[in-house]
Amino acid sequence: MLLFETMSKAFTRESDADEDDDDAGGSQPPLPAGTRNYMTPKGYARLRDELLTLLDDERPKVVEAVHWAAKNGDRSENGDYLYGKKRLREIDRRVRFLTKRLEIAEVTDPSAHYGGEQVFFGATITYVEDDGKERTVTIKGIDEAQSQLGEVSWVSPIARTLLRSRIGDVLKLETPAGQREIEVLSVSYPAPDAPG
């Protein structure tokens, strides 16, 4: 009998998909090389809350369920155990991702530009395309932008085109369909929080 035939299943890798991935655990794209991880204070707080919820609530519950399932006999056919272990890997991957992104976050408060007419990070901009269609976008961080809410990442083509522009500027936007002209109609920022 060969030595390798008696090796415990515990020492084998379940799949190559389990490898640690810096950007696994997040659907966000990796940060472009040499850039900062800009984030609004609300975006930072939301990601931090997610991290704390995973560490303080969800992970302990899954660990408890896996521990209970492990006591129920054959682990190779125990669905609760297998699902629990898979969920633990997903949680741990997301925790690593969030921890790394929050460590390098550069929190930038857009309310510092309140009342300004130039586009900076955190601005909400209404622009009109050359076909007359108006659109409104808010420039946010890579990890916090939610397109369904009209938010765009600061590294997106539209955000890069709009940054540093002013109300009334006509800009050239490169799209897959070709170059388009857009005109900035309005720029706004959230109001600063009232002191104390």
Rank of each mutant, 00 (worst) to 15 (best):
L162A: 06
A17N: 12
R75P: 00
E174T: 03
P32H: 15
D16E: 11
A177T: 15
L102F: 05
L31V: 03
F120I: 01
W68Y: 11
G26N: 06
F120C: 03
G43D: 07
T99A: 14
D57Y: 04
G116C: 05
L102T: 13
K42S: 12
R59Q: 14
F11M: 09
D169K: 13
L3W: 12
D193I: 01
G84L: 10
N72Y: 02
P195T: 11
T53G: 08
P176A: 03
K140Q: 11
I182N: 11
A24T: 03
K140P: 00
H67E: 14
K85A: 04
V95P: 00
G84V: 08
R59D: 04
Y114I: 00
A69I: 08
R75T: 03
R180T: 09
G196A: 15
G132Y: 06
A45R: 08
D56L: 05
T53W: 01
T40L: 04
L171F: 07
R93K: 08
D20V: 02
G79V: 14
R160Y: 04
D23F: 14
R48Y: 10
V128F: 01
L162C: 07
I167Q: 02
D92A: 07
R89K: 04
A159P: 10
L162P: 05
T99E: 15
D16Q: 04
V107N: 04
F11W: 13
A105L: 06
G34M: 15
D21W: 03
D92G: 03
A70S: 15
A112R: 14
T35A: 12
F4W: 12
L162F: 13
P176N: 14
R93G: 00
K71E: 04
Y189C: 01
G141C: 06
A65K: 13
V107M: 07
I167A: 05
M1W: 10
N78R: 09
S8H: 09
E174G: 06
A123N: 10
E106G: 02
E5V: 02
L55Y: 06
V152P: 13
R46T: 14
R180E: 06
A145I: 12
E181C: 07
S153V: 06
E134C: 02
A145D: 08
P195K: 15
A33H: 11
P32M: 14
A177N: 12
D20P: 02
R48S: 10
A123V: 08
E106P: 00
I91D: 08
E106I: 04
K133G: 02
E106F: 01
Y127L: 08
K42G: 12
R180A: 03
D49H: 10
D74G: 03
T124N: 03
P60C: 11
V66W: 01
L173T: 09
V170A: 11
